[in-house]
Design a protein around this nucleic acid. Structure first.
Lengths: 231, 231
DNA sequence: CCCACTTTGTGCGTGCTTTCACAAGCGCGT
DNA sequence: ACGCGCTTGTGAAAGCACGCACAAAGTGGG
């Protein structure tokens, strides 16, 4: 049992790479819309805003889908990345908290690539329940478990106030949802095996403020415009 | 060839640490509201969802603000982190693109910590211009340069459709804004010295889908839980 | 068929991040 | 004053990530 099959297809794709694949995918789809058939790593890297060596190494984790001397076939690569990301199947998404943000998310029609379908909108406020948002009726949060079961929800989006987020997360988990996208500004506590990703506006702003302050400090008072790389 | 002077030794807080400081700050403020005076690295790390050694190393970059055998004084640490992040001064923010998302951002009142003030809302749609959102009149995008100058805007938030984002970014940069938070699903092209951070819903969803798919694969085909599946 | 040219895939050095493990420091009880 | 228990701050090691630079592999022209 020493012989290795020609293509082991290891599942060990680095996290940093996974985070960039969606960016590549978007760039590729833009090329596809423009009718481009093949693209070099150099050009694609430019469109995605990364170093070309990094892009090639990222893609090499999926397999050898390029042709030396030519580049990558756009359509084929779109398919391979989509498949790797799991976008060839349909993911059913439920959004809890139909405030300003929840509405924005519900109306964010083009979910990047297809692959995601908003199955339900839930809220606790009687004022909001029953209203129609993005062609869906907002249902009461009490129906969460039922909705998850009946609609086969596999991804839960939390857009509630901070105080309600942990409770909603717990109910999602209890109902069997193992992927959660959290917009509430709290650290969610979930059992192992549940994947939580956080999106937090105020954190991003604070990071921007830090860099802005550092620029101001370093450049010295008075020097407004200057070249200092920050990423 | 660019010579590399050994400069960044002075204020060299690692990027990874900066990204976590806002999380610590929020946890500390929660403790403060609950009247807690001091906290150990173990407890604070728990509240922030990180390893305690990492937390201590992160804080050590700011200075020695803890007391061995006791922990950290909450109030003092809140101040130190706030100062480091630049939240002790006021940052003036302009939001461009008052669609669903822009409205959500404008109404997101408690900007984490104080430190940020929404100075203006801008949009290109005559239908939206003139309306009042979050106690501010939406102004036409043509006034961008004037608004940046008069209100001292230092952070620009882009919540427009993808097609308009690059143009808005260019105008922000031209007007002297060097910090941009981009919600549009495109890679922005900006000169050196301008700091762009991106928040992208569909990318986060795709990363979740990847992990969910991998879990399903590993658990074995057929071990899929009830519901869904469009094979 | 061969050669010049293009572009991929990757070995390797470098630097950043995380984690462990423990000495040093501080408060408290005796 | 002294020692004990607790907690910080930090060397050192291990693990990742990035980007250079180049061999390998393919294309096309003569």
């Amino acid at each position: 049992m020493i012989s290795r099959p020609p293509r082991p297809r290891e599942r060990g794709i680095p996290e940093a790479t996974v985070a960039r694949l969606p960016v590549y995918l978007r760039a590729l789809q833009a090329l596809q819309d423009r009718g481009t058939a093949t693209v070099s790593s150099e050009d694609l890297a430019g469109a995605a805003g990364v170093n070309s060596a990094k892009l090639r190494k990222d893609l090499s984790h999926l397999g050898s889908y390029g042709t030396r001397g030519v580049g990558y076939e756009v359509e084929y690569l779109v398919y391979q990345i989509s498949r790797e990301l799991g976008l060839t199947q349909d993911w059913s998404v439920a959004i809890v908290g139909i405030g300003n943000l929840g509405r924005a998310l519900a109306n964010y029609g083009g979910f990047g690539t297809r692959g995601f379908r908003i199955a339900a909108l839930l809220d606790a406020d009687p004022e909001v329940v029953g209203r129609s948002v993005a062609s869906l009726d907002v249902r009461h949060i009490d129906n969460l478990e039922e909705v998850v079961r009946d609609k086969g929800v596999s991804i839960g989006v939390i857009a509630t106030p901070a105080g309600s987020a942990q409770g909603v997360a717990g109910r999602f988990v209890e109902a069997g949802v193992t992927s959660i996208l959290n917009f509430a500004p709290v650290v969610l506590n979930v059992p192992d095996g549940v994947d939580v990703r956080k999106v937090d506006l105020s954190i991003e702003l604070q990071i921007l403020a830090f860099h802005a302050q550092r620029r101001a400090d370093v450049d010295g008072p008075g020097a407004e415009r200057a070249g200092l790389e920050v990423t």
